[in-house]
């Protein structure tokens, strides 16, 4: 398993790096959209796929990252903190939000957790819509700064593609390392049988909180990139549908597996672009697909292979 991964990974990476010039501006833009969802998927996968916590309010942390960046890097307050400084800041903000929500709600059992997180996502959106002086309400935040290094400004679809690509590599690397560690094993054990895991010495609350905050911080990065890339953000960008989309892409792709997340994002975000003509049936098909998926292939298209570590060779 590990060896095939070693061979294929560089090929896939190389292919993806060479992709934009081959497909042109428009499709590079689309790939960028997919890429952001891949990042979100990798993050939510830590929460849902690894730790088994159903979070339906993931969009909240995405929104926190996006507004965190937009407020401090736009004419809204006249503050212009550089993107690279704000990036860790957004991670911290989102992680803080995750901890703040996680501490009270993680004691709840799974289905309550789903509803409360869903409620939290909605509360954040309602607040963004109504806290006018801070968020400018439904009018949104405009003219958000693009990331820059000296004179090099990330402002074209090509440049964004590579920036997002780097973000994905980073997220995937972190998620993969966590998954194959003492922490990842604790998550899986907890997902399998919470009581038994506790008796085996795993501090359940701590590991749930850890998954929740790590997942949230990935969304923080995604949010900052989204805000900087769009240049303007509105509360409506952060509706429940974002949470549902991200959740669905990991389920369709295969819960717990990173290639699965990528495939899921391509299917979910990319396919509608290809099938523009039947756009109106997209969500209909999608809802039906989810049901069918649960019944016929609950593990997704690329289920995570529970692989062993290199160490063991």
């Amino acid at each position: 398993m590990m060896n095939t991964k070693k061979i294929y990974l560089p090929i896939v990476v190389l292919f993806l790096l060479l992709l934009p010039p081959m497909v042109g501006n428009y499709w590079t833009q689309v790939l960028g959209n997919i890429g952001i969802y891949v990042m979100l998927g990798i993050g939510l996968n830590v929460v849902v796929g690894f730790a088994g916590l159903l979070d339906l309010g993931y969009v909240a942390f995405y929104a926190i990252g996006a507004y965190g960046y937009a407020l401090l890097a736009s004419p809204h307050f006249g503050i212009h903190i550089p993107f690279w400084v704000m990036l860790p800041g957004c991670v911290a903000l989102a992680a803080g939000g995750g901890a703040l929500l996680g501490i009270p709600v993680l004691r709840m059992r799974g289905d309550y957790l789903a509803i409360v997180t869903l409620g939290f996502g909605e509360i954040i959106r309602i607040l963004l819509n109504n806290l006018d002086p801070l968020t400018n309400g439904p009018r949104g935040l405009l003219r958000i700064d693009a990331p820059a290094m000296g004179n090099f400004v990330v402002n074209s679809p090509f440049r964004w593609y590579y920036l997002i690509f780097a973000g994905i590599i980073f997220s995937a690397f972190v998620a993969d390392r966590l998954n194959n560690s003492r922490i990842g094993r604790a998550w899986i054990a907890m997902r399998e049988d919470q009581d038994a895991a506790a008796v085996m010495g795993i501090n359940i609350l701590k590991y749930k909180l850890l998954a929740f905050t790590i997942g949230a911080s990935f969304a923080g990065i995604g949010g900052a990139i989204f805000a900087a890339r769009q240049g303007s953000i509105f509360p409506e960008n952060f509706s429940l549908m974002v949470s549902i989309n991200v959740l669905c892409l990991i389920i369709i792709g295969g819960m717990g597996s990173i290639p699965g997340v990528i495939l899921g994002a391509v299917i979910l975000i990319g396919l509608p672009e290809i099938l523009r003509g039947v756009h109106q049936y997209r969500m209909l098909a999608f809802g039906g697909l989810l049901v069918a998926m649960m019944i016929f292939r609950p593990t997704g298209f690329i289920p995570s292979a529970r692989r062993k570590m290199e160490l063991r060779e």
Binding site: L178, R182, A189, E192, M200, I202, K308
Partner: peptide
């Protein structure tokens, strides 16, 4: 932990004797 290997089950047992953090 049914979906973990036998070896992984034992690794989980060692959890509290290990230290690695995030």
């Amino acid at each position: 932990f049914g979906n973990m290997t036998a070896l992984e089950n034992i690794l989980v047992g060692q959890h509290c004797r290990m230290k690695a953090g995030v």
